[in-house]
């Protein structure tokens, strides 16, 4: 969608990017910075999900397993081996990518609901295993209690900062990376192939495409990024447990934000997160105590409305509107 973006769209993207970069000079309240960081984090996670699921047209509801496993790898490498979380994060990402191949190889042969159910099953099995395992061959997983990242104070090496601001900029940098990666992928052979597989799997095979192979390539990249996000989350809260970092809620968030924003586009998932996370946050803070899970009700309502009126995501009518304003053609 970068390639076909109108001038107005490009300008708008730049304005939003500049706004995000300079936001902390307008907003100084730590709570607001925290919320902004979470919005950017969810944008990154939704975009990571979209990298495979949006383009290949398969609904994974088990992506949180990559986030969780990579988060654990990062935290454990720090606490057990004294390795910097920056390096642990990459290891975690690779670990998630390898795991994704093991999960994806059997599941990508399945279609539609069968694929979705299998991804849920894998992720839930892993979560339950983590919750019930205190010690695995000498590695202290501490079950459902989770792991705390020991405080070492303001240290770049240890990925720990006294202020919220550095986390915000790290999340923003990660988001920039996934946006660029997705834009490059979309215009590469992989992007064409994924769209072909989504459009007609048999037809794609007849054109020399091995659907499992290319789905797995995209899945492993997606899992790598999701893992990086999971590691970031663990560092941001200095805490990781199976439910928050590996639970199905996170998987659903990633999927729904992408679907509502516009899956299979570079910026759709980010739009989805920018719309949904603030709604959820407001619902949680203003009504959270008395109405637990209200944000999920709102998600459901927004999802239903989007599917009814903008089945390809909110980004589609938005782009049409922008094109009309600038008088250009929409693809």
């Amino acid at each position: 969608m970068f390639g076909s973006a109108t001038t107005l769209e490009r300008a708008l993207i730049l304005i939003v990017a500049a706004f995000l970069v300079f936001l902390p000079s307008i907003v100084r309240d730590p709570y607001h910075i925290h919320t902004a960081t979470m919005i950017v984090y969810f944008s990154f996670m939704a975009a990571s999900w979209n990298f495979v699921c949006g383009y290949v047209g398969q609904l994974s509801l088990g992506h949180s397993v990559f986030s969780g496993v990579a988060g654990y790898v990062t935290v454990l490498m720090f606490t057990q081996m004294g390795l910097s979380p920056w390096i642990g994060m990459l290891f975690g990402g690779f670990f998630a990518a390898v795991l994704s191949l093991a999960i994806g190889f059997p599941t990508f042969r399945l279609k539609g609901p069968y694929f979705t159910l299998t991804t849920i099953a894998f992720a839930e099995i892993m979560r339950i295993w983590f919750e019930n395992t205190d010690n695995f061959i000498g590695i202290p997983l501490k079950g459902s209690e989770g792991l705390v990242v020991p405080l070492v104070g303001d240290s770049f090496w240890a990925f720990q900062f006294n202020e919220k601001l550095p986390y915000y900029y790290i999340a923003l940098a990660l988001l920039a990376i996934i946006v660029i990666a997705t834009a490059i992928m979309e215009r590469s052979k992989l992007g064409y192939y994924l769209k072909a597989i989504r459009g007609d799997r048999d037809g794609a095979e007849a054109l020399g495409i091995n659907p499992t192979k290319y789905s797995l390539i995209a899945l492993s990249i997606s899992a790598f990024f999701t893992g990086i996000g999971g590691a970031f989350f663990a560092q941001f809260f200095r805490y990781i447990n199976p439910e928050r970092n590996m639970g199905i809620d996170l998987s659903i968030d990633m999927a729904i934000m992408s679907i509502i924003g516009g899956q299979g586009t570079v910026l759709g998932p980010i739009l989805g997160s920018f719309i949904l996370h603030p709604i959820a946050e407001v619902a949680r803070t203003s009504l959270g105590g008395s109405f637990l899970g209200l944000h999920l009700v709102i998600y459901g309502a927004v999802l239903a409305l989007t599917v009814l009126y903008f089945p390809q995501g909110i980004i589609v009518p938005l782009r049409k509107l922008l094109a009309r304003i600038s008088g250009g053609d929409v693809k």
């Binding site: 064409y192 192939y193 007609d200």
Partner: peptide, 17 residues
């Protein structure tokens, strides 16, 4: 079944790869 979200020309390019 054409591949959606790709133009006619891009559909043909898929074969070229």
């Amino acid at each position: 079944k054409p591949f959606g979200d790709l133009s006619v020309r891009e559909n043909i390019m898929v074969g070229g790869f």
